[in-house]
């Protein structure tokens, strides 16, 4: 799966458009969990809407293309997902997914509706059996199928929705802050469930979007960090956590508090200032007004993504360093 040069803006007339996602290119490989991290307003949920083809006005896609499983889909203009994509190619697990179950129907009836909406050829009995079998494979109690949503806990509902939304074995699952409404124990169970879905091959890849870096470091193979609509760094999780290159990633990592005696010893600094208004993004590097390492060029020219294919960062400092290293 690959997206290229995606620009997605919110029309905000009479003001200029909000440039929520600006020229982002990413790839998610088979069997991989790609984490997309960033703070509120960095464009990560907009990116989820773009990839899941659920962009609706005022959000519009200015340019970009999506390649999935050998098919290339231009994203600009009014996009309609090919009929065979729905639920099978891309599935979405949003933050409030636990509330998407039908409160007046048993879970099994909901499952039948979902499966048959995508494939009317499946009989209701087959759909139920498929769900039952899937729950068993994932060591979840099949009796949840006979329950009404209010009889299940929030964590269990979220897990049930995760299972139901992947019943059709989608190629890509987009999980947009799926854990933020849950307590830590349910969070862990959901993350383990998603990993299991991937391991068993029910889904091929996951885009896991969150602001919660500790959570992400426990599930993602690679992490892409976004700031103000731009991709600022992409690398393996261990690299992002252990050797971040971009000043924003560094600040983000160092302001993360683990419950560990070491965090008490030192005083953390955080980042001064606030994210920019994306109607009027800063010139060139969008992080420069808050960056402690900003140089003149940072206000003049946009930094390119530099580094090796395994570790890319968009920062002039990094660019300079890599040029010194390879004269």
């Amino acid at each position: 799966m690959r997206i290229k040069n995606v620009r997605a803006y919110y029309a905000a007339a009479p003001d200029p458009d909000v440039k929520a996602v600006d020229d982002v290119s990413l790839a998610i490989y088979e069997g991989e969990v790609l984490g997309i991290a960033g703070e509120s307003g960095c464009g990560k949920s907009t990116l989820a809407a773009v990839i899941s083809l659920t962009a609706a006005p005022p959000l519009y896609i200015k340019s970009g293309e999506l390649a999935l499983d050998g098919e290339v889909l231009p994203l600009a203009g009014p996009v309609r997902a090919p009929a065979h994509w729905h639920g099978k190619m891309v599935a979405l697990l949003p933050q409030r997914a636990l509330n998407s179950l039908n409160p007046t129907a048993r879970v099994r009836d909901f499952v039948v509706d979902v499966v048959r909406a995508h494939d009317p050829a499946v009989s209701p009995r087959e759909a139920r059996e498929r769900a039952e079998h899937r729950l068993e494979q994932l060591s979840l109690p099949p009796r949840v199928l006979d329950s009404y949503p209010h009889q299940l806990s929030g964590g269990m509902r979220q897990r049930v929705v995760a299972v139901v939304s992947t019943l059709l074995d989608p190629n890509l699952l987009i999980a947009d802050e799926p854990t933020s409404a849950l307590d830590v124990s349910s969070q862990k169970q959901l993350v383990l469930l998603l990993k299991l879905l991937l391991e068993r091959g029910f889904i091929k890849r996951i885009a896991f979007i969150t602001h919660d870096l500790p959570m992400l470091s426990n599930i993602a193979d690679r992490i892409a960090v976004m700031y103000a609509g731009k991709l600022v760094e992409v690398a393996a999780t261990t690299e992002i956590v252990g050797a971040p290159q971009h000043p924003y990633t560094q600040a983000l990592i160092s302001s993360t508090l683990d419950p560990d005696p070491r965090v008490r010893q030192c005083r953390l600094e955080g980042i001064q200032g606030a994210p920019p208004d994306l109607r009027y993004p800063p010139s060139a590097c969008r992080f420069h007004p808050r960056c402690p390492l900003a140089m003149p060029i940072c206000t003049e020219e946009e930094p390119p993504l530099t580094g090796t294919a395994d570790h890319l960062a968009a920062c002039w400092r990094v660019h300079e360093k890599s040029r010194e290293a390879t004269p």
Binding site: S147, L152, V184, V191, L192, D212, P214, S217, N218, D260
Partner: peptide, 27 residues
């Protein structure tokens, strides 16, 4: 104890074991 075991950490401990299949405390 459970809280400390379940809280995700950025540094140390490594990832949660994927082998531990999720179990449901209630139904």
């Amino acid at each position: 104890q459970r809280l400390m075991a379940d809280v995700p950490l950025l540094r140390g401990r490594g990832g949660w074991a994927a082998a531990a299949a999720p179990t449901a405390p209630e139904g």
